[in-house]
Measured scan of single mutants.
Amino acid sequence: NKASVVANQLIPINTALTLIMMKAEVVTPMGIPAEEIPKLVGMQVNRAVPLGTTLMPDMVKNYE
């Protein structure tokens, strides 16, 4: 099973992601793959992301 990106803390709306906000975890359903973490740094979330939430592509602005 591949790990996904999971919020390590509450991430407020429009916050630019940093490494300490994210962790890799095997979850179902899968979200953004953990190997994308370096690419996510500096990208903004378009909603508040609660602690423990799996990051999905539609939660990150301009994620492709």
Rank of each mutant, 00 (worst) to 15 (best):
N1R: 04
N1Q: 15
N1Y: 14
N1F: 07
K2S: 10
A3H: 04
A3D: 12
A3T: 15
A3G: 15
A3L: 14
S4H: 02
S4N: 02
S4V: 03
S4K: 02
S4C: 02
S4L: 01
S4A: 06
S4W: 03
S4Q: 03
V5C: 03
V5K: 00
V5F: 01
V5M: 03
V6M: 13
V6Q: 05
V6F: 03
V6C: 03
A7Q: 00
A7V: 15
A7I: 05
N8F: 13
N8K: 09
N8Y: 14
N8S: 06
Q9C: 03
Q9K: 11
Q9Y: 09
L10Q: 14
L10V: 15
L10Y: 14
L10F: 10
L10S: 07
I11H: 01
P12A: 10
I13T: 12
I13V: 06
N14D: 14
N14Y: 09
T15C: 03
T15A: 06
T15Q: 04
A16N: 11
L17A: 01
L17F: 04
L17E: 00
L17R: 00
L17P: 01
T18K: 12
T18L: 06
T18D: 07
T18S: 11
T18Y: 09
T18Q: 05
L19V: 14
L19R: 06
I20E: 13
I20Q: 15
I20L: 05
I20Y: 08
M21F: 08
M21G: 13
M21L: 10
M21N: 12
M21E: 02
M22P: 00
M22G: 00
M22L: 09
M22R: 00
K23L: 11
K23Q: 15
A24P: 13
A24G: 10
E25W: 12
E25Q: 06
E25H: 10
E25C: 03
E25V: 13
V26P: 06
V26T: 15
V27I: 04
V27H: 15
V27G: 08
V27N: 05
V27C: 02
T28G: 10
T28Q: 10
T28P: 03
T28C: 04
T28H: 09
P29T: 09
P29D: 07
P29N: 06
M30F: 14
M30H: 11
M30G: 10
M30R: 07
G31Y: 02
I32A: 02
I32P: 00
P33L: 12
A34D: 06
A34L: 05
E35L: 11
E35M: 10
E35R: 09
E35W: 05
E36F: 06
E36N: 10
E36M: 04
E36L: 07
I37P: 00
I37F: 06
K39H: 13
K39Q: 15
K39A: 15
K39C: 02
L40P: 00
L40S: 01
L40Y: 03
L40V: 11
V41Y: 06
V41F: 03
V41I: 06
V41T: 08
G42I: 01
G42L: 08
G42H: 08
G42K: 08
M43R: 14
M43V: 10
M43A: 10
M43H: 11
Q44W: 10
V45G: 01
V45S: 06
V45W: 01
V45L: 08
N46A: 09
R47P: 02
R47I: 12
R47G: 10
R47C: 03
R47M: 08
A48H: 15
A48T: 06
A48I: 08
A48E: 13
A48Q: 15
A48G: 07
V49P: 01
V49E: 01
V49K: 00
V49H: 02
V49I: 14
L51F: 14
L51S: 08
G52K: 04
T53V: 15
T53F: 06
T53K: 15
T54Y: 02
T54H: 04
L55N: 00
L55F: 07
L55S: 01
M56L: 08
M56R: 10
M56N: 07
P57Y: 12
P57A: 08
P57H: 10
D58Y: 13
D58F: 11
D58Q: 11
D58V: 06
M59S: 12
V60I: 04
V60Y: 02
V60Q: 01
V60K: 01
V60R: 00
K61H: 12
K61L: 08
K61W: 12
K61P: 13
K61S: 14
E64R: 02
E64H: 11
E64Q: 10
E64T: 11
E64G: 13
